[in-house]
Computed example of a mutant assay.
Amino acid sequence: MTAWNPGGQRQPDAMNRRAAQQLRLAWEGAAVPVVNGAAPWAEDALLLPGARLREAAVLGRQFGQAAALWGTGRRVALVWIGPEAVSVERCWAVPAGPYTGSP
């Protein structure tokens, strides 16, 4: 989960850092710092172990995100967060590296 660049609109780094800190305070569970994306759009983000899909959607909406990545085991979902509704695209996660042809 990231709080950077709400609505896909680039924000000053100071605003993004403040939003990231607010996200960390909003999540009461354990969090693992990660990086979302790649340069020039690399953003500080948090991996939120134990977060439920609904919690991911609520946090994403609270911080102006268009989507959040949520997963459990080898299943992941891209959670699209609209102004009034949430939609979910589910898929399998596969390890990085050469594709072996089996999920």
Rank of each mutant, 00 (worst) to 15 (best):
residue 71 G to M: 11
residue 87 S to A: 08
residue 59 L to P: 03
residue 46 L to W: 15
residue 95 P to D: 10
residue 2 T to A: 06
residue 49 P to D: 11
residue 73 G to K: 08
residue 29 G to S: 04
residue 47 L to R: 07
residue 78 L to E: 13
residue 43 E to G: 06
residue 14 A to C: 06
residue 56 A to T: 01
residue 61 R to S: 12
residue 61 R to M: 02
residue 51 A to M: 08
residue 69 L to S: 09
residue 71 G to H: 10
residue 86 V to G: 03
residue 75 R to Q: 14
residue 85 A to W: 05
residue 30 A to V: 03
residue 42 A to C: 04
residue 19 A to F: 10
residue 87 S to Y: 00
residue 17 R to Y: 01
residue 75 R to N: 11
residue 35 V to Y: 08
residue 70 W to C: 07
residue 40 P to D: 04
residue 17 R to F: 06
residue 45 A to Y: 06
residue 64 G to S: 15
residue 41 W to P: 00
residue 72 T to H: 09
residue 7 G to D: 15
residue 35 V to W: 12
residue 93 A to W: 14
residue 81 I to L: 15
residue 20 A to I: 02
residue 1 M to E: 04
residue 100 T to P: 00
residue 9 Q to V: 15
residue 16 N to T: 07
residue 6 P to C: 14
residue 102 S to H: 07
residue 40 P to Q: 06
residue 61 R to G: 09
residue 26 A to E: 05
residue 94 V to S: 07
residue 25 L to G: 01
residue 77 A to N: 09
residue 46 L to E: 05
residue 101 G to H: 07
residue 31 A to T: 07
residue 20 A to H: 13
residue 38 A to S: 02
residue 95 P to C: 07
residue 96 A to D: 13
residue 50 G to F: 06
residue 10 R to T: 15
residue 28 E to R: 10
residue 72 T to S: 08
residue 93 A to L: 14
residue 94 V to F: 02
residue 34 V to R: 15
residue 20 A to L: 08
residue 50 G to A: 04
residue 49 P to Q: 09
residue 57 A to Y: 02
residue 51 A to H: 06
residue 88 V to A: 02
residue 101 G to E: 05
residue 14 A to F: 11
residue 76 V to D: 06
residue 20 A to P: 00
residue 14 A to R: 14
residue 90 R to W: 10
residue 80 W to T: 13
residue 51 A to W: 07
residue 90 R to Q: 10
residue 65 Q to K: 11
residue 62 Q to W: 05
residue 28 E to T: 09
residue 99 Y to C: 05
residue 13 D to T: 12
residue 47 L to T: 00
residue 76 V to M: 13
residue 70 W to M: 11
residue 72 T to D: 08
residue 21 Q to V: 10
residue 14 A to W: 12
residue 32 V to G: 03
residue 15 M to E: 15
residue 79 V to G: 08
residue 4 W to R: 04
residue 14 A to Y: 08
residue 84 E to S: 14
residue 28 E to A: 10
residue 49 P to G: 08
residue 11 Q to E: 14
residue 51 A to F: 05
residue 30 A to D: 13
residue 25 L to H: 04
residue 41 W to D: 12
residue 86 V to A: 03
residue 12 P to V: 10
residue 93 A to Q: 13
residue 40 P to H: 04
residue 12 P to N: 06
residue 25 L to K: 08
residue 89 E to Y: 04
residue 48 L to F: 07
residue 103 P to F: 01
residue 46 L to Y: 12
residue 55 E to A: 03
residue 35 V to I: 15
residue 13 D to I: 13
residue 85 A to M: 05
residue 20 A to G: 07
residue 82 G to L: 12
residue 12 P to Y: 01
residue 4 W to E: 03
residue 12 P to S: 06
residue 84 E to D: 15
residue 53 L to N: 02
residue 39 A to E: 08
